[in-house]
Nucleic acid binder design. Structure first.
Length: 420
DNA sequence: TCATGGCGA
DNA sequence: TCACGTCGCCATGAT
C-alpha cells in the first residue's frame, strides 16, 4: 500500500495513466492466456529434420577436417578455428576482436579457400540443430506436446515484448533450410495457424511523425515505397528500377529507422562507403522532412532527457550527456529509433487487446497464441478461419488512427511454414 | 561469467 | 581521424 501511493503518483506525474491502465495492465491477462495455451510441436517433423541435419553435419565435419589436414580440433571453438585458418592454412586474418582473430561469417566470406564454404554451411546447420532442434526438444511438454513461451513484458527499453524458454520470436525464416524449422509448429487437429503482420509499420510511423509529403502520398496511394526510394536515390524512372536497386533502397529505408551511418549502410548494403554516403544524402534530399524529424528528435532528447512514443511510453537517454563520442552517438541513434520501434510496439499491444476481446466477445474458439513484434498468430478451428482473418485485419488496421493507413498481410496453413 | 557468433523483427 | 544501425535470446567455449 505504501508503494501504491508513491507509484500511482509517479504514473500520473509522467502522464502514464492511459498506457498503464488501458494497455499494459489488461495486456497481462492476454499474455497469460497466450502462454498457457501454447503451440503444438510435431515431434515427427522435428525428428525428421534432426536426422537430415545430423547427417549433413557429419559429412561437413569430415570435409572440414580433410581440408584442414587435421582432425584434432574443435570446429566450434573460434580460438582453435582461428589457429587452423590463420596459422596452419596461412590465410590472411583481417579483423580482430577482444580475444584474438575474428572468424565471423563476414570475415570467412572474404577468404579464398575451399574450407570456407564447408565452414559456413556447418555453422548454419549446427545453429539450426543446437538451438532449434535440440533446444526445442528440451522445452516441449511431454504430456501435451506443446511449448509455452514466457513473454517478458517489462524488459526492453522500447516497449517490445521479449520471449524465452523457448524464444518463439526468432524462429528462422530467411534461408530455405532455416525456414524448414517452421514446419514443426503445427495447428491442433481441425485447426489452422493464421498469421497477420503489419506491413512496414515503422516506415509508416516515420511518414506519420515526420509528415513528409512524399512518404504520406506514397502510403495513401498504396505505392511500393522501397521502389519509390530507389527511383529517387538512383535518379531513375520508377519503371526502370531494377530489383537490385530496390534492394539497396530497402537497406537505406531500414537504415534510416536505426539512425544510419555511411559505414553501417555500406556494410549492410554491400556498397562502398562513398556510395552509401551518397545514398543517404540523396535520401534526405528526397525526404527533407525526415531529416528535420530526426534532428528534432535528437535535440528534444538532449533538451528534456527523454522521448515519448505514440502511447506516451518514456525512454530516457542519459548517453546523450556523455563526453565520449561513441556513447553519445549511440544515444543519438537510439533517440532516432525509439519513437518508431516504441510506437510500433504500442500499436501491436493495442491490437492484441482488441483481438483478444473480440475473440472472447464473439465466443470464438480461436486463440491468440503468439506475437512476433509486428505479427500476431492465432490458432483457429477451420470453420472460424474466414471470420477470424477478417477480425484480425480490422482490429489491427484500426488499432490507432494515423495520417496514413496501416496495412495488414494475412496468411494461414496447417503449420507455421505454410502460414507465411 | 564473459565473449563470440548467429537467429528474429 | 575515430567511430561506425535498433531491440532482443541462446548455444558454445574459454576463463
Amino acid at each position: 500500500m505504501e508503494l501504491n501511493a508513491i507509484l500511482s503518483e509517479k504514473i500520473q506525474e509522467k502522464n502514464l495513466s492511459d498506457l498503464y491502465f488501458n494497455v499494459e495492465l489488461p495486456l497481462i491477462r492476454c499474455l497469460f492466456d497466450m502462454e498457457r495455451v501454447g503451440l503444438t510441436v510435431d515431434l515427427n517433423v522435428l525428428n525428421e529434420l534432426n536426422e537430415q541435419l545430423s547427417a549433413e553435419i557429419a559429412t561437413l565435419v569430415e570435409t572440414i577436417y580433410d581440408l584442414a589436414g587435421e582432425k584434432d580440433f574443435n570446429i566450434n571453438s573460434n580460438k582453435q578455428l582461428a589457429d587452423i585458418l590463420f596459422g596452419k592454412l596461412g590465410l590472411k586474418a583481417s579483423k580482430k576482436n577482444k580475444t584474438g582473430f575474428s572468424v565471423s561469417a563476414d570475415v570467412l566470406e572474404e577468404l579464398e579457400h575451399p574450407i570456407v564454404d564447408a565452414l559456413l554451411r556447418y555453422r548454419q546447420l549446427a545453429k539450426l540443430k543446437s538451438t532449434y532442434i535440440d533446444g526445442m526438444k528440451q522445452v516441449v511438454n511431454k504430456a501435451t506436446g506443446r511449448v509455452h513461451t514466457d513473454f517478458k513484458q517489462c524488459l526492453t527499453t522500447t516497449g517490445r515484448l521479449s520471449s524465452n524458454e523457448p524464444n518463439l520470436q526468432n524462429i528462422p525464416v530467411r534461408t530455405a533450410e532455416g525456414r524448414e524449422i517452421r514446419k514443426m509448429f503445427v495447428a491442433k487437429d481441425g485447426n489452422v495457424l493464421i498469421s497477420a503482420d503489419y506491413s512496414q509499420i515503422e516506415l509508416r510511423l516515420l511518414a506519420h511523425f515526420s509528415q513528409e509529403p512524399n512518404l504520406i502520398e506514397a502510403y495513401k496511394n498504396g505505392r511500393d515505397v522501397h521502389a519509390l526510394t530507389a527511383s529517387k536515390i538512383f535518379k531513375t524512372p520508377l519503371e526502370e528500377v531494377t530489383s537490385s536497386m530496390r534492394r539497396s533502397a530497402k537497406a537505406v529505408n531500414f537504415g534510416i529507422i536505426y539512425g544510419i551511418s555511411g559505414f553501417g549502410l555500406a556494410k549492410n548494403a554491400g556498397v562502398s562507403q562513398k556510395q552509401a554516403k551518397a545514398f543517404i544524402e540523396e535520401y534526405f534530399a528526397t525526404y527533407p522532412k525526415v531529416r528535420e524529424y530526426m534532428d528534432q528528435n535528437v535535440a528534444l532528447a538532449k533538451q528534456q532527457g527523454y522521448l515519448t512514443s505514440l502511447a506516451g511510453r518514456l525512454r530516457y537517454f542519459p548517453e546523450l550527456t556523455s563526453p565520449q563520442y561513441t556513447i553519445r552517438a549511440f544515444g543519438e541513434r537510439a533517440a532516432m529509433n525509439f519513437p518508431l520501434q516504441g510506437s510500433a510496439s504500442d500499436i501491436i499491444k493495442i491490437a492484441m487487446l482488441r483481438v483478444y476481446n473480440a475473440l472472447k466477445e464473439g465466443n470464438f474458439k480461436s486463440k491468440l497464441i503468439l506475437q512476433v513484434h509486428d505479427e500476431l498468430i492465432v490458432e483457429a478451428p477451420e470453420e472460424e478461419r474466414e471470420k477470424v482473418i477478417e477480425l484480425l485485419r480490422e482490429n489491427m488496421k484500426n488499432a490507432v488512427e494515423l495520417t496514413i493507413p496501416l496495412d495488414v498481410g494475412v496468411a494461414y496453413g496447417k503449420n507455421w511454414y505454410d502460414a507465411k
